[in-house]
Nucleic acid binder design. Structure first.
Length: 95
DNA sequence: TATCTGACGATAG
DNA sequence: CCTATCGCCAGAT
C-alpha cells in the first residue's frame, strides 16, 4: 500500500524530499514543510531533521513568524538575501 | 510503556 | 517585543 506513513524513517524521507523541492528564491515554514510531507502538525519534528541533516537547503526554511535559525541568523540572512529576500531585524520581511 | 529532547506554533499577558 | 505556557510530533533512551 501507498500510505505507510508510520514506517520508521518515512517522515524524514518525505521531509527531505519536500526540502529538495524548494527552489532558489522560495521559502517555506517548518509547518508547511511538515504538511507538504504528509505529516501536518509535525513542524517541530521538521526542525529536528534540519538540525541534523546534511546537504539540505536549511536556509529556505523559516519559522511561521519569519524568524531565522537561532544562532545562525547572520549566515541565514546572508543566504536569503543572496536569493533575493529582504531581512529586517532577523526576520524575513512580511508579505 | 514512560520520558526526554528540540532550528515549532498559537496564544496570553 | 518579550517571556511563559501549552499543545503537538518524530525519534531516541
Amino acid at each position: 500500500m501507498r500510505g505507510d506513513l508510520d514506517k520508521p524513517g518515512e517522515f524524514e524521507e518525505r521531509v527531505r524530499r519536500v526540502l529538495r523541492g524548494l527552489r532558489k528564491g522560495e521559502v517555506a515554514t517548518y509547518g508547511e514543510v511538515a504538511e507538504e510531507a504528509g505529516f501536518p502538525g509535525a513542524a517541530r519534528a521538521v526542525g529536528n531533521v534540519l538540525a541534523r541533516g546534511k546537504g539540505l537547503p536549511w536556509w529556505r526554511v523559516v519559522s511561521a513568524a519569519g524568524r531565522l535559525v537561532p544562532g545562525h541568523e547572520s549566515e541565514h540572512a546572508r543566504r536569503l538575501r543572496r536569493e533575493g529576500f529582504t531581512i529586517v531585524n532577523g526576520r524575513l520581511r512580511q508579505s
